[in-house]
Every structure is written in structure tokens, then in C-alpha cells.
């Protein structure tokens, strides 16, 4: 009960943040009725999805300070679990999705154990290595469709059990609910014992250890928790009705996830959301705008990359870090 109360308790945020969050929530709730076009709807769904991913990354990457460049592994596990169990055994989404999350958590726990013998760069590179291995396996494993991927059976009628709808609005509300579950969870997490301990680990590992914190165990816990992004993978499977190793497991996806959280402000509740709000539309509009024109492929990513470099060099704490800095100076 106490935990639940903490999850809904936003009192320690400033007035401006509370008002902003409320207005934003009303906007999200009403969005499908504002008459936006289908393209904008897709962008909004992507924004919510990537915010969710970013929040997952934030547990280990933001609060814990461990640069995880393999988050797409969990997304992929979630997506494949939902898709495969549906194709093979017709298992409904509502059963396969929790299965996917459990598998992703189990997988993270398993690889987290050796991974967290490593620190800093070594850890980051190792997360890339494990995710490339996993992607290679899926891309060559004929049983799971290899590089061709899997198509999900399309139902004639909308089906809630299998999460198949004709209109994007349903998908929108579904991902919105997941998004809020993630926000409330993170709101609790940031003030939980583990949340505080992770921030200490990020600041100063030696000091953390002297305060009774089992560093490796804390990191493994946070890493396993961050595997909840698998739920987004499951969503991608039923939403796109098609998955392959590139769309749900690629390194680019991992990078985007980490980048959005970092650009917005790693280690803050709003950071990943702000990052996604910036980069998803940028990505989509640039992509559809430039990608359509021949000879301009890659320009969107170049702009992206410039952003990463500038932020890393001048404001590693991200957009939210800049806002915080101004506020501290002002007060």
C-alpha cells in the first residue's frame, strides 16, 4: 500500500512540473479526438513506445550510470515471444506478453551476472557484443524464421485477446496505459531503496560499498528490472504484425533507446520522455521527408549524431540537466 501511495505521489516535484504533467496528460487522453492525421497518430504511438523503452533504460543506465547499449535484446525477446507463441500455439497476447517479460527478465538476470563483473567501457562494449550474438542467432535460426522474420496471422475481425484492431486509436490507448504504468512505476522506483543506492553507485562506487551496498547485486537487480521494456516488444509484434531481427533487435534500436534517455536527461523521471518527444518526431519527419527523396538517406541520422556529439561535449546531463541547472542557480 505504502508503495502504491509513493507511486502516485508527485508532491516533491515543483508546481511547474505538476501543472505541466497534468496538461500533458489531458492532451494525451484527448489526442485521438483532436483530429490528427494517421501519420501523426503513428508518431504519437512511437513516442509513447520509445518513452517506455527509455524509462526502462533509465533504471540501469540513468539511475545506475551503467551504459547499456543492448536494450533491444529485451525488446526482441518480448516481440519474439508474443509472435512465436501466437503463430505456433495461438496463445493470446495477454498470456504471451507476461511470458515475454519474464523471459526477458530471466535473460537479463542470466547475462547480467557475468556482465557486471565489468565496469565503464568494458561493460558498454560487452552489452553490444551480447546483443550482436543474440541477433546473429535469431537471424540464422530457421525455427524462428531466421532473417526473414515472422508474420503474425491477421484476424478477420478485431480481437481483443490477440490485440488486433482496425483502428490505431485502440493501439494508442493501449500503449498509453503502458506508458502510465511505467511512469508510476518509475516514480516509485526513483525514491525506492534501490533507486537511492543506484544513484550512490553512479556517483561513487567506493563510497557506496562502504555504506553496505552490494554493488554488483544492485546493478543486476536494476538491469533485470529494466527488462520490462519487453512489453514494448510485445506491442510492436501485434501492432506491426511482422517482426524480424532487424526491426526488434538491431543495435540501432538499442542506440536510439539509450540516446533518447540520455538526450532528455538520464537519471530523471522526465528525461526519457523529453528525449523521446524530441527525437521521435525528428526521426519520423526527417525520415519521411528526406528518406523519400532519393540520395538523401542518412541525413536524418547525421543530424541525430551531431546532436549526440554536441550534447556529450557540452551538456552530458541532457536537456533536463540544463533545466535543473538553471533552476538551482535561480533558487
Amino acid at each position: 500500500m505504502e508503495k502504491l501511495k509513493d507511486a502516485f505521489d508527485f508532491r516533491d516535484f515543483s508546481r511547474a512540473e505538476q501543472v505541466g504533467f497534468t496538461i500533458f496528460s489531458i492532451f494525451l487522453l484527448l489526442f485521438p479526438w483532436l483530429g490528427a492525421g494517421s501519420f501523426v497518430k503513428v508518431v504519437m504511438i512511437q513516442f509513447l513506445l520509445f518513452s517506455l523503452f527509455g524509462m526502462g533504460w533509465n533504471t540501469i543506465g540513468g539511475y545506475g550510470g551503467q551504459v547499456d547499449l543492448g536494450k533491444a535484446q529485451c525488446v526482441g525477446i518480448g516481440a519474439y515471444t508474443v509472435a512465436l507463441t501466437m503463430v505456433w500455439w495461438k496463445i493470446p497476447f495477454w498470456v504471451s506478453m507476461p511470458m515475454g517479460i519474464l523471459l526477458a527478465v530471466g535473460y537479463s538476470f542470466m547475462i547480467g551476472y557475468p556482465l557486471f563483473r565489468l565496469k565503464g567501457h568494458y561493460f558498454a562494449i560487452a552489452t553490444i557484443a551480447t546483443s550482436l550474438v543474440l541477433q546473429d542467432i535469431f537471424a540464422n535460426w530457421k525455427l524462428v524464421g531466421a532473417a526473414k522474420g515472422i508474420e503474425l496471422p491477421i484476424h478477420d475481425h478485431p480481437d481483443f485477446l490477440y490485440m488486433q484492431f482496425k483502428s490505431d486509436t485502440y493501439y494508442y490507448y493501449f500503449i498509453m496505459v503502458l506508458f502510465y504504468v511505467a511512469i508510476f512505476y518509475m516514480n516509485w522506483f526513483r525514491r525506492s531503496k534501490l533507486g537511492y543506492q543506484l544513484r550512490m553507485i553512479k556517483d561513487d562506487e567506493d563510497a557506496a560499498e562502504s555504506l553496505g551496498i552490494d554493488i554488483r547485486w544492485c546493478k543486476i537487480k536494476a538491469y533485470s528490472i529494466s527488462a520490462f521494456v519487453a512489453v514494448g516488444g510485445g506491442f510492436m509484434a501485434v501492432y506491426n504484425l511482422y517482426i524480424d531481427p532487424v526491426s526488434v533487435m538491431d543495435l540501432d534500436l538499442s542506440i536510439k533507446i539509450a540516446l533518447m534517455a540520455m538526450l532528455g536527461g538520464a537519471g530523471s523521471l522526465w528525461g526519457p520522455i523529453i528525449g523521446a518527444a524530441f527525437l521521435v518526431p525528428l526521426d519520423r519527419f526527417l525520415g519521411s521527408w528526406l528518406g523519400g527523396q532519393k540520395g538523401l538517406i542518412g541525413l536524418d541520422f547525421m543530424i541525430y549524431a551531431m546532436l549526440i556529439m554536441v550534447v556529450s561535449a557540452y551538456q552530458p546531463r541532457g536537456i533536463w540537466g540544463i533545466i535543473e541547472q538553471f533552476r538551482r542557480k535561480g533558487s
Binding site: K193, Q197, D203, A207, A208, I213
Partner: peptide, 26 residues
């Protein structure tokens, strides 16, 4: 290590979390 991530009370709370799981107690 002079760090910027946490306030003084948060630093001390981490210490207190060594003996309790409850945020309010800490």
C-alpha cells in the same frame, strides 16, 4: 569524491538505507 548527483540529505539517506527498507524511516 565531490559529486553533483545527490543532495546532502539524500547522501545520508543512502547510509540509513543500510539498516532499513522504508524510505520514511531512512
Amino acid at each position: 569524491k565531490v559529486t553533483t548527483g545527490m543532495s546532502v540529505i539524500e547522501n545520508v539517506m543512502v547510509g540509513a538505507f543500510c539498516r532499513t527498507d522504508d524510505r520514511h524511516t531512512a
